[in-house]
Simulated scan of single mutants.
Amino acid sequence: FNGIEESDFCLVIGANLRIDAPLVHARLRKRALLGGFDLAYVGGKLPSHRDFTFPVDYLGDNPNTIKDIIAGKHPVSSKILNAKNRMIILGMDALTRSDGHALIESLGAYASATPIIQNDWNGFNILHKAAGRVGGLDIGFVPQKDGKSTLDILNAASTGEIKVVYLLGADEIDFDLLKKAFVIYQGHHGDRGAHVADVVLPGATFIEKNATYVNMEGRVQQTIQGLQPPGEAKEDWRIVAALAESLGQTLPYNTLDDVRKRMIKENVIFERLDEISKMPWRPMPNLKSTLSSESFKPASWSFYMTDPISRHSPTMAKCIQEIDEPIRQREIAYG
């Protein structure tokens, strides 16, 4: 996303930019108004209040369009090859489909084989919706060898194969699949996960702890604690360390500085605050997945309630009532 202002062509797939990332949409609009820039969109048809606010070439919602572009059989294929700085933005509405693996594999291979990836230019972008996901990926917080994905964990819990599930601030999953499991929830505001939990470990909000975040551009940022956590609430790393010790697995972290040193050991970008670190391009693994024929659809996504804090905010609730709901009713009335 760092090079939007220098790009001259962008292909957006399965991303509702005005809702998912308004600032990215604003930057693309600014680039379009300067001229010499084209944007094509493959995805579900967007309602008027969520559609792009600048000219866009809508390519429809058929996944076969992606195949044609990659195979060089679509008019957009030549636009990508003839552009100087071309970009792909792949949204989570696409990646959370059943064929998400196939999409990222095929598009990643396409990016590697074309000038989308160059020594001084990386035009392959994934638009995440969760604030902590980029940092989690940077630190390697992914299933390890023989590990399970989120969906695998949920399915195994639903059958009783997994007996205990630990939710670390996880509130955007299908909780009906956890009815047979013993659920531990670590988080704040008593959100969705807390309501199904057998044990709740109260954590601290972002203003109640010193924390590290990574934004969409890969810029590492740190925040400073402004308030003390209420009651029994603690910083997340302290909860995990205390739990590990009670289980006889003492972790080598006595201070926040110890945690941050380990983060830097895992990935050096955590040492470079407020900088965009250039990371080497890694080819996507070929798992021989296949694209589905199911049409793309924009996901239901409430702009004003995207996390536990905003879902408990009277102000955000009023925004839903006074802004979103009237628009929804007008769309129902006028089709």
Results as ranks from 00 to 15, higher is better:
5 E>Q: 02
7 S>Y: 04
8 D>W: 05
9 F>M: 13
12 V>C: 05
15 A>C: 08
22 P>M: 03
23 L>S: 07
24 V>T: 12
24 V>I: 08
25 H>W: 02
27 R>W: 08
29 R>M: 11
34 L>N: 11
34 L>I: 15
35 G>D: 00
39 L>H: 07
42 V>G: 08
45 K>M: 13
46 L>S: 08
49 H>V: 15
54 F>W: 07
55 P>K: 01
59 L>Q: 09
61 D>K: 12
63 P>H: 05
65 T>L: 04
66 I>Y: 00
73 K>G: 04
76 V>Q: 14
77 S>A: 09
79 K>E: 08
83 A>R: 01
90 L>K: 06
91 G>K: 02
92 M>V: 00
92 M>K: 03
95 L>N: 07
96 T>G: 11
96 T>Q: 06
101 H>S: 15
102 A>W: 01
105 E>G: 01
105 E>W: 00
106 S>E: 04
109 A>H: 09
110 Y>E: 05
113 A>I: 03
118 Q>L: 07
120 D>W: 11
130 A>I: 15
131 A>W: 05
133 R>C: 13
136 G>E: 05
139 I>V: 15
144 Q>L: 03
149 S>C: 03
150 T>C: 09
159 T>C: 05
160 G>S: 10
164 V>L: 13
169 G>M: 05
171 D>P: 06
172 E>W: 11
175 F>R: 00
177 L>N: 09
183 V>P: 09
184 I>C: 12
185 Y>G: 02
186 Q>R: 02
187 G>S: 10
193 G>I: 03
196 V>S: 14
199 V>K: 06
199 V>I: 15
200 V>S: 02
202 P>E: 00
206 F>G: 02
209 K>S: 02
209 K>V: 01
217 E>K: 07
218 G>T: 00
220 V>W: 02
220 V>E: 08
221 Q>G: 14
222 Q>L: 14
223 T>Q: 14
225 Q>N: 10
225 Q>L: 01
227 L>E: 08
227 L>K: 09
228 Q>K: 10
231 G>N: 15
231 G>F: 09
234 K>I: 06
234 K>L: 15
238 R>Y: 06
240 V>K: 06
241 A>V: 11
246 S>C: 07
252 P>W: 07
257 D>P: 10
258 D>R: 12
259 V>F: 04
261 K>I: 11
263 M>V: 06
266 E>W: 12
271 E>P: 03
272 R>V: 00
274 D>Q: 12
277 S>Y: 08
279 M>G: 04
280 P>W: 10
282 R>M: 15
287 L>G: 14
288 K>T: 08
288 K>F: 02
293 S>F: 04
295 S>H: 11
304 Y>C: 05
304 Y>D: 05
306 T>H: 10
309 I>E: 11
317 A>L: 06
318 K>N: 10
319 C>T: 09
319 C>W: 04
328 R>L: 15
329 Q>I: 14
329 Q>W: 12
333 A>I: 10
